[in-house]
Design a protein around this nucleic acid. Sequence first.
DNA 1: GCGACAG
DNA 2: ATCTTGTCGC
Length: 310
Amino acid sequence: MKFSKEVAGLVDQIPSGMISTYGEIARALGDVIASRTIYATLSQGIDGNAPIHRVVTARGEAAYSKHLQVLKEEGVPIRDKRVRDVSEHLFKNFKSTRILEKMRKEQEKLAKKVSLEDGFTASRLIGGVDVAYDGDNAYAGCVILDAEEMKLVEERRLSGMVSFPYVSTYLSYRELPMIKRIYSKLKNKPDVLMVDGNGILHPRRIGIASHVGLELDTPTIGVAKRLLLGRLGKVPEKIGDFGSIIHKGKVIGMALKTSKSDNYVYVSPGHKVSMKSALELSKKLCYHRLPETIRRAHRMASELKRVRTK
DNA sequence: GCGACAG
DNA sequence: ATCTTGTCGC
């Protein structure tokens, strides 16, 4: 399954004289949230001769003025450098595998299996994973630390290709394959693994950290640098303070102040870890803005990318 | 202009 | 995430 092929297959269905929008293509795949990803995918170019000029924004704007000229020749009315009436010529009857809908259903099914109880006996070996990118090339870094002595126990790095793009709330479908591969290389499996991204702080309560935890059947914690959803309850004042992230009346994560700025770190349980433990372990490892595990994994991934890119 | 959604 | 020089602040 290559995402861009999936998109090309949809664009190919738009007949001459008709148009579609980034949002409509995303809807055809099963979630309008992917509209910006569709825009990015088409901008980067897709294999084949799909008529990408027939895909415009919801307001009728084309990526290139050249595209408007072609649309005009195909009989689509243009005015003020825009498609005059988007809905009038909008093609909607896509035949689609609805891949995002399938993924969402899978997430909903998996979310029921997430455990928010501590499922570890020791919490000495803490892991961190992160992935850097150069187009479809991925570079993963993984580090295992002894949290008692703050000593490095193991480091792994791995490069590979990814076939699925970044789509907000579907991040695990991009990164999980690489994370599984690098985890399998570890000689020292961590008591708890920290993942760059959210755990249950997710619309379906199954962010990448939860998905990874279920897939590897291991305790995980999600640590994100930006808030995906929800609102902050009490504002953290001092370093070490934290405030709840509330969504639909539930506490689904914690905003932890780890530096002088208001760039909180958003911590949430992934799988087999309680909210309390997720927060405590994250705090314990924060000598800088990010927990040391995530910080080092991030540096490893970036460094691997740097040497491989040159 | 509003709203804004991890990596 | 990535694109990216010098600049600001601790």
